[in-house]
């Protein structure tokens, strides 16, 4: 009895210590998470509705290895190597508010750069849903000293946010393949996690061309950094209209010309 139990226990211990992949993932059909996050299962059911997914190198997430400024962690995702991308969902597994952004490109490439707040080191993922209903998931692990989500925005802390609220500055760069549009919208983007400061953030933003045709839709969540700065690849367009709302009903509406 004891004789065979001892090796069993050692084996168990080795299995438990040496292999962090959960039993469910070992036995089930789900692919193992390359970022080995304890929250991936929750992310999958909450943000991808538990639908079919693959971890796919075609979805690139660029981010620094370590967040120098937890309030402004630059993230770039690029799913333009996939055909028929309907939407991209960005999430940070270990953030207190894990939902970061949703991007629905209509006629422009599935590529976007922005900045976010991180409360601690976390995987940051972009999941692109293609026309066949499959999610293609890419990601990067970003280390962070943290605290990004529970601090008041500079605008709210200094009290001058109201004079610039919703103001847009932008520029367009002509390039051989895709022109580059960079847009900054002044907004505190308060997460609601700083004591006594309610949630106050831009909820949706649409980018249209000069004729009013929709180029892309975006849904922004609390972790997007204050005064969101976005970089997009926009085909051959040179004139744009930016429309959006925050959660208090304030409108964003601006015209960008080269």
């Amino acid at each position: 009895m004891t004789l065979f139990r001892l090796p069993a226990c050692i084996l168990l211990l080795i299995i438990t210590l040496g292999n962090p992949v959960s039993a469910a993932e070992q036995s089930g059909h789900a692919p193992a998470d390359p970022l080995n996050s304890p929250q991936w299962g929750v992310m999958h059911s909450r943000f991808l509705n538990g639908e079919t997914y693959v971890f796919d190198d075609k979805v690139k997430v660029l981010a620094p290895d370590s967040a120098e400024d937890s309030l402004n962690v630059p993230i770039t995702f690029d799913a333009s190597a996939l055909q028929g991308v309907e939407k991209i969902v960005v999430m940070a597994d270990l953030n207190p508010i894990p939902g970061v952004l949703e991007f629905r490109p209509k006629t422009i490439p599935a590529r976007l750069s922005f900045r976010m707040k991180l409360q601690q080191g976390s995987p940051v993922r972009a999941a692109a849903k293609t026309a066949d209903g499959v999610w293609h998931v890419g990601g990067a692990w970003v280390d962070a000293a943290g605290g990004g989500c529970t601090l008041p925005s500079t605008g709210t802390a200094t009290g001058d946010w109201s004079s610039t609220l919703g103001k847009v500055s932008a520029n367009v760069w002509q390039r051989p393949d895709n022109n580059r549009l960079r847009v900054r919208v002044m907004h505190p983007m308060d997460t609601g996690l700083a004591s006594g400061i309610p949630t106050f953030h831009i909820e949706d933003m649409n980018i249209l061309d000069e004729s009013g045709a929709l180029l892309a839709e975006m849904t922004l969540h609390e972790p997007i950094s204050e005064n969101p700065m976005l970089s997009l690849d926009v085909g051959k367009h040179t004139g744009f209209r930016l429309e959006g709302h925050d959660n208090n009903g304030n409108r964003i509406d601006a015209e960008v010309v080269e």
Partner: peptide, 22 residues
């Protein structure tokens, strides 16, 4: 990577122009 975080925000802000607000 770190220096970009420290020094780039001021430079890129300078590269933008005010948009026409509706």
């Amino acid at each position: 990577q770190r220096s970009v975080s420290h020094l780039y925000p001021a430079l890129e802000t300078d590269s933008l122009k005010p948009a026409k607000q509706a």
